[in-house]
Design a protein around this nucleic acid. Structure first.
Length: 378
DNA sequence: TGTTATGATTGCGT
DNA sequence: ACGCAATCATAACA
């Protein structure tokens, strides 16, 4: 009789439990827990031991500063992170151990009691689940505080604003080269930014920041940047002259919008530039045949000049470019010369070119209402 | 230690 | 979303 009675009691109890379970909704998969898990994994706390590349490293690498300083900073950061990792894992292990110990204890207790009162295996299982749930809540708290610790660590070690690093020489070089060779329109496109970022080992947003700062600081105090401008102008002038000379020989003109187009400084006045783009644009633009022939005459002149005197002359380019420009019809409107919109020169309408106070109009072949600080020519 | 240079951020306008 | 202007915070230098 006793086993039969016991079984009936178990059955009744099971039904009760089921009805209770129906009321108590099963916990939905916890989104918060998932977030925490993902973050810990991304931060390299809960993932595999060694991570060649990952969240923190990738962020740190964007500073682009001196490698030595970075490595020092990295090792310090890594040390702290591994400390957090260690604590996290030891705590997690403790919790798991405690959980399994407690579960075993409860199971034993229930089994013991099942001799005297109706406790079904399902009920035991349910109890185990409840215990696991409680422990996972505690685990979540652990995960949360670990995440907080990692965030604090990151903000302390990797906050770019707190730990500003100057860019590497290479990065500064690349950025300055672009800036001074596109002085008439120092607004790199997204592609150009990506290219510069790649070359300089920095991020695109760092490139944007740099250009933002550079434009405004250059505008504020042009005198201060003169020496720097001279250096880069001379540098790019030589490059551009070589390109043109090669282009002449190979009968292939340089691309107007390429990043390699040079900028040139007027040696006597000491504060003026004109982009080689001014010259090359004529060749590739949909302009009249007479203009193109003038350009080819100019090119030949330069070539002869270079060959005969053996001097690379950026100055001559400037004069030639201005000469061609001034002899063109509609010279008051740079846009119409190019036979189209600003886009053909890569200048956006909202970013006009430099104006020339001496001539009373823009230097580059850009927006007639130029507002970027003027560079006087001649 | 004060000053300057410089990379990043913020708030605003377009 | 992008750029400008002002500002912050720190590196680099005298």
């Amino acid at each position: 009789m006793k086993p039969a009675l016991f079984s009936v009691l178990c059955e009744i109890k099971e039904k009760t439990v089921l009805s209770i379970r129906g009321i108590q909704e099963e916990d939905p998969p916890d989104a918060q827990l998932m977030r925490l898990d993902n973050m810990l994994l991304a931060e390299g706390v809960s993932g595999p031991e060694k991570r060649g590349r990952g969240g923190p490293m990738a962020v740190a690498a964007t500073s682009g500063g001196c490698p030595n300083d970075n490595s020092i900073e990295h090792s310090d950061y890594r040390a702290k992170l591994s400390q957090i990792r260690q604590i996290y894992h030891s705590e997690l292990e403790k919790y798991e151990q405690a959980c399994s110990e407690f579960t075993t204890h409860v199971m034993n207790l229930l089994r013991e009691q099942s001799r005297t009162r109706p406790i079904s295996p399902k009920e035991i299982e349910r109890m185990v689940n409840i215990i696991h749930g409680k422990f996972s809540t505690i685990q979540m708290q652990l995960k949360q505080s670990t995440c907080e610790a990692v965030m604090i660590l990151r903000s302390r070690f990797l906050d770019a604003r707190r730990k500003r690093r100057n860019f590497s020489k290479q990065a500064t070089e690349v950025l300055n080269e672009y800036f001074y060779s596109h002085l008439s329109n120092p607004y790199p496109s997204e592609e150009a930014k990506e290219e510069l970022a790649k070359k300089g080992g920095i991020t695109v947003s760092q490139v944007s920041n740099w250009f933002g700062n550079k434009r405004i600081r250059y505008k504020k105090n042009m005198g201060k940047f003169q020496e720097e401008a001279n250096i880069y102008a001379a540098k790019t002038a030589v490059d551009a002259t070589n390109v043109v000379a090669q282009g002449n020989q190979a009968n292939s003109p340089s691309t107007p919008n390429s990043a390699s187009s040079g900028s040139f400084k007027m040696t006597n006045s000491g504060d003026s530039f004109i982009n080689l783009q001014s010259l090359t644009s004529y060749q590739s633009s949909p302009v009249g045949a007479n203009v193109q022939s003038q350009v080819s005459i100019v090119r030949k002149t330069i070539h002869t000049f270079n060959n005969e005197i053996n001097v690379k002359s950026p100055l001559l380019y400037c004069y030639c470019a201005l000469y061609v420009r001034n002899r063109l019809p509609n010279r008051g409107g740079g846009v119409s010369i190019l036979g189209g919109t600003q886009n053909q020169t890569g200048h956006s309408p909202e970013h006009p070119a430099l104006t020339d106070p001496a001539l009373g109009r823009e230097v580059g072949l850009n927006n007639p209402q130029g507002s970027f600080p003027a560079l006087s020519i001649l």
